[in-house]
């Protein structure tokens, strides 16, 4: 069993984000929506044939050039852009386009950052949390599809 299990982590972050949101804890709910989407995308990449490292996670280095970082070894929102840009690195393009089509609102994460965890409440873009929530739910629906397809 590998340490990293993106699918489970994605579903866990989403469930916990919902719990936090229901209790009015918007700041950390927002962080977890972003991580839910990130883990979901990474689960999709592996389901579509991107080779994981020994831990089950995405490898740190570019497959063709070990001095460069792997374009999928990123957080949101850069990760979603790189998935679109570096599509040629995904072995099963047919499946990935099917899954990508079920997540039309990944662009919502443009205003999301891992840095938010250091920010003051007053500086956080709370108005964006509903957008992050809906986009993270799309990612979860995509995971449900991949699960039925037997790729997860």
């Amino acid at each position: 069993m590998t340490t990293v299990l993106y699918e489970q982590a994605a579903r866990r972050h989403l469930a916990d984000a919902e719990t936090l949101l229901n209790q009015g804890r918007l700041a950390n709910a927002g962080q977890l929506y972003g991580f839910a989407a990130e883990c979901g995308l990474k689960a999709m990449l592996i389901a579509c044939g991107v080779s994981p490292d020994a831990d089950g996670g995405l490898p740190k280095h570019h497959p063709a050039n070990s001095r460069r970082t792997h374009p999928f070894y990123k957080h949101m929102p850069i990760l979603k852009d790189n998935v679109a840009t570096h599509g040629q690195l995904i072995p099963d393009g047919l499946l990935s386009s099917r899954y990508m089509a079920s997540m039309p609102n990944l662009a919502h994460f443009r205003g999301w950052s891992t840095e938010h965890r250091y920010w003051a409440d007053a500086s956080l873009p709370f108005n964006l949390v509903p957008n992050w929530q809906s986009a993270a739910k799309e990612v979860a629906t995509m995971l449900d599809q991949a699960k039925q397809d037997g790729n997860l």
């Binding site: 386009s97 089509a101 039309p104």
Partner: peptide, 11 residues
């Protein structure tokens, strides 16, 4: 033949 993103899921 691509699936296309739509408001109510992929078309």
């Amino acid at each position: 033949y691509a699936d296309v993103p739509g408001a109510n899921g992929p078309q």
